[in-house]
């Protein structure tokens, strides 16, 4: 039995700035991290591995330098790491990305029966939340998004019941396996890698799958297979608002100014 964690290496967006001239992300010198939502997806897989003893495969589509993130997945406890990397995959939108990932997962399913695929709810660089559902649709798996708890997993009966975290409410949903879950941060606390595992992961083999292995039609993947493109990225400029007082040197004074302002605007009543 196999559980697949879909992970992505993303730029640490807290450190990303936008080039004001070209309106593109300045990625130079920015460290890459495992997409934070995906760390929860991987953790959920590892918890199931601890519980059911199934194998966990971490899979990612990305450039060769995404190897660092694959090693991190191995150091945390993934049994294998597969990096889908090919120039033909580059520049893909969510449609083309989910096609490549779904094909790779289908290939994994030929070797071992897949119970679950778990993704983070979205990435912090693209923020679309579309790739997970895209994979589920292509594979015909049950699609369970925004999961914050696995209520029950019955491997023999091949059913899963999860709780979805929606705005202002929870929804409990039951579905047959195989299923694809996208998870929110609240589902778990990711573990920390043990040093012997880190050292092992440092030299472990990362499987590199290119399009020769996946055999996809080049016009349906990568930039060519992507109907969406980004025309412009920009930080919205702040047009209103002001700084009140000097909060560092005179916090009491600044708080006073703020209260006065709120009273004046009748946002606060005495």
């Amino acid at each position: 039995m196999l559980i697949v964690a879909c992970i992505k290496q993303v730029p640490d967006t807290t450190q990303v700035q936008i080039d004001p001239v070209t309106n593109t992300l300045v990625r130079e010198g920015i460290p890459f991290i495992m997409n934070p939502f995906d760390t929860h997806a991987l953790e959920e897989c590892l918890k199931l591995k601890d519980r059911f003893g199934c194998r966990v495969a971490a899979i990612s589509m990305g450039p060769p330098n995404a190897e660092a993130t694959m090693r991190k997945a191995l150091s945390l406890g993934a049994d294998e790491a597969i990096l889908l990397s090919d120039r033909a995959f580059g520049g893909a939108d969510t449609l083309a990305t989910s096609k490549v990932l779904a094909t790779a997962i289908a290939k994994l399913a030929e070797q071992d029966e897949i119970a679950l695929v778990i993704c983070g709810k979205q990435t912090i660089d693209g923020d679309t939340a579309q790739v997970g559902p895209g994979i589920a649709t292509r594979l015909g798996y049950s699609q369970l998004t925004l999961v914050d708890r696995i209520e029950e997993l019955d491997m023999q009966g091949r059913r899963i019941r999860v709780r979805r975290k929606l705005e202002g409410r929870h929804e409990i949903v039951e579905a047959p396996l195989p299923a694809l879950l996208t998870v929110v941060r609240e589902i778990n606390r990711p573990r920390y890698a043990k040093v012997p595992m880190r050292l092992m992961a440092g030299t472990a083999e990362i499987q590199l799958w290119n399009n020769q292995i996946l055999q996809l039609d080049a016009t349906t993947i990568g930039l060519k297979g992507s109907p969406t493109w980004v025309s412009r990225i920009f930080s919205p400029e702040r047009t209103t608002g002001e700084m009140l007082g000097d909060g560092i040197n005179d916090p009491v004074g600044a708080a006073g100014l703020l209260v006065d302002k709120l009273l004046e605007k009748e946002l606060l009543a005495l």
Binding site: R189, P190, R191, Y192, A193, K194, V195, P196
Partner: peptide, 11 residues
Amino acid sequence: QMEAKFPEELL
């Protein structure tokens, strides 16, 4: 290092 066991604030 061997157990990855520590108070959770440290993660």
